[in-house]
Computed example of a mutant assay.
Amino acid sequence: MQVRPDHHGAGGAALVWRVPPGWTALSSASVGGGPGRPRWVTNLGVGDDFTRTDLPAYAAERAAALGLRGPGTTLLTAADVTQVEHAEHDGVRAWATVGVTKPTWALAPDGRPPTDPGLPPPPGTINIVAALPRPLSGSALVQAVGTLTEAKAQALLEAGVPGTGTASDAVVVLCPPPGEGGADTPPEAFAGVRSRWGQCLAVAVHTAVSAGMRARPWPAADVDAGVRW
């Protein structure tokens, strides 16, 4: 599977992952998310002033401009996608675009919703795409998303970020179909943080997100480090 930055797509820069046939994905993306077998994944750069709400139509327009066909999964971010961080550990690969301008806790410190739920979250997104070399069972795919999220949160806390992520973070976990690498290769049953492949995933994600934080340390000069929302 290959990733390439594309600076010529209509609407802004994009990262494109070409996914081999038969691969399975589990994603929190708002376009093409959930379980599925995408043929491609995109991480699309959008401006801070992006206001479109017809996200499937927008994603389809950008995909067509990039020459992509078939089902796919689309991530969006106001971060500079050309500054993608990549890490690999024992065959597990992770790519992260790290934009931390509005970090948030899962629960506001005072226990109340930190923002008007009717308003879209401000720009500041961490998007992560991860690929494992082994097939995963359905439950292991869910565990992998949890492992990825824990590793991201750990990297942010170690970097001094006051939150476990941003309100618009999205992830994609990809794995090959059963039988990949041999007809008798069964799906892995576990991908939690203490399983072999979960630990490899945690290392790769933590490394990529940490690199993103080193490149763009918290807090940025134009960010109020005291904000909690």
Rank of each mutant, 00 (worst) to 15 (best):
V41T: 13
S168W: 00
P35H: 12
A208Q: 03
W95I: 03
A208V: 01
P135I: 02
V172E: 11
A59N: 14
V205E: 11
I126F: 11
S27Y: 02
R134K: 13
V205S: 03
A10R: 15
G99E: 05
A79C: 10
H8V: 07
P133T: 02
W229T: 09
V41Q: 03
V193G: 12
D110L: 11
G146T: 14
V205D: 11
G182I: 09
L15W: 12
W105C: 09
G160I: 01
D110H: 09
T125P: 04
D54S: 10
A215Q: 15
G34S: 12
R18L: 11
P133W: 06
T147D: 08
E88C: 02
E150D: 15
H86A: 14
A144M: 05
K102N: 15
A131Q: 13
V205A: 08
V171C: 08
W23A: 05
D169N: 12
D169A: 13
V16I: 15
G72E: 09
V172N: 08
V172S: 13
T97A: 06
V19F: 01
G182W: 06
F50V: 04
S27W: 02
W105H: 15
T74G: 11
S28C: 10
W17A: 14
G67D: 04
A131Y: 04
T77F: 02
R216S: 09
R18P: 00
R39D: 13
G9W: 07
A78T: 00
A211Y: 01
G12N: 06
A64T: 12
T74F: 09
A14M: 15
A221V: 13
G165N: 04
P117K: 10
G165L: 06
M1P: 14
T149R: 12
A202H: 04
D224C: 07
V3A: 14
A140L: 00
R216G: 00
T164C: 14
S137Q: 11
V142S: 12
A191V: 01
Q199D: 13
A94M: 10
V205W: 05
T82A: 15
R93Q: 08
R112W: 04
D184Y: 06
G118P: 00
R39Y: 01
S137D: 06
T97D: 01
L136F: 03
P177V: 03
A59E: 13
Y58P: 00
G99V: 08
V81S: 05
V173K: 06
V193H: 05
T101Y: 09
D80Q: 02
P133N: 09
A13V: 00
G32Q: 06
P162L: 11
G34H: 10
G179L: 06
S139L: 13
A202W: 04
A10M: 07
F50A: 09
T53M: 11
A183N: 02
P114Y: 10
A140N: 04
A14C: 12
A221S: 14
L119F: 06
M1S: 14
T147M: 02
L174E: 05
G72K: 09
L174V: 08
T77K: 00
Q2W: 06
D90H: 11
R62H: 01
P176C: 14
G181D: 08
K152V: 06
V145Q: 10
T185P: 00
P162Q: 14
P135G: 08
G22P: 02
E61N: 09
L44R: 10
G165M: 04
T166D: 08
A108D: 15
A183F: 02
A144T: 01
